[in-house]
């Protein structure tokens, strides 16, 4: 177990070192959420006046959901570094070393979790600058971060698994794009649940992005309904564990192919 943790730490450290030398990559992943927050958020400012929105400020409503959405979208790219490692000899070298397959996955997921926290804090900051106020305080922010991390882990694991199965950059990016947009629109990220068409609201209850968005918004209110938060966070946690396990299993498919 200690070896497992040590290996996870070493692999996470390797990725963080790479990121620290190419910090522009992190900024690049923030371009899209900034467009949503600054342009979309401004364009639809008055939407929050509709009955059904819990707050008068649309940016305040939008920020926690966008944090979750960004975590999901960025995590979808996670597998691309697996594919790079496979195209080079890095993956093969790792697999012939004492590093377990599980540690390769957890190393990737831990790295994704850390970058998600950095991204989310930047977005919180931008939200504050735009006038959003979070009544939930530090605890609320902590829960939003937790939701974002769990969602990132889920989608990073999915992306890693797909990478091991398809072993092709274009296919992986295609699949993750194919998922990201529908999941975003079939959720309460941009529109209050009360104002959605019924069928969208029904579908959204099965959407992990929606779980994260609902729990995050709830946690930032002045008096959160903890039942809502716990049930969503619990589902996210369960899903993240299942996905991590599936990603580890996907190594078998990769090893059969080589």
């Amino acid at each position: 177990m200690t070896t497992f943790i040590a290996h996870t730490g070493l692999l996470t450290g390797r990725s963080l070192r790479t990121l620290s030398r190419q910090p522009a990559y992190l900024l690049f992943t923030l371009v899209q959420p900034m467009v949503w927050l600054l342009l979309f958020g401004q364009l639809f400012t008055r939407i929050a006046e509709l009955p059904g929105f819990s707050t008068d400020s649309y940016v305040e409503y939008l920020t926690p959901g966008l944090i979750a959405m960004t975590a999901m979208m960025t995590a979808g790219w996670s597998g691309t570094s697996f594919i790079e490692d496979m195209e080079r000899g890095v993956m093969d070298q790792t697999l012939t070393s004492p590093v377990s397959r599980g540690a390769v996955i957890t190393g990737s997921l831990a790295y994704q979790g850390i970058t998600t926290v950095i991204q989310s804090l930047i977005m919180f900051g931008v939200g504050l600058l735009l006038g959003a106020r979070y009544a939930g305080g530090v605890l609320g922010v902590g829960i939003v971060l937790l939701c974002a991390v769990l969602l990132a882990v889920t989608f990073a694991a999915l992306s890693d698994a797909v990478a091991l199965l398809v072993r092709q950059q274009e296919a992986l990016i295609g699949i993750s794009q194919f998922l990201a947009l529908p999941l975003s629109f079939l959720s309460s990220v941009m529109m209050a649940p009360a104002l959605m068409p019924d069928w969208v609201a029904d579908v959204a209850t099965f959407n992990p992005l929606d779980w994260a968005a609902v729990a995050s918004r709830e946690a930032l209110t002045a008096s959160p309904d903890w039942g809502v938060i716990f049930s969503r966070v619990g589902s996210l946690l369960a899903l993240a564990v299942v996905m991590g396990w599936l990603a580890t299993r996907a190594f078998r498919a990769y090893q059969r192919s080589i």
């Binding site: 070192r17 790479t18 093969d92 012939t96 004492p98």
Partner: peptide, 20 residues
């Protein structure tokens, strides 16, 4: 697992990290 501890493998493809 035991084999992996006593072997070194230099594959045909480069395995070093270029950003290190």
């Amino acid at each position: 697992d035991q084999v992996r501890r006593v072997i070194g493998y230099v594959s045909q493809k480069p395995a070093f990290d270029p950003i290190a």
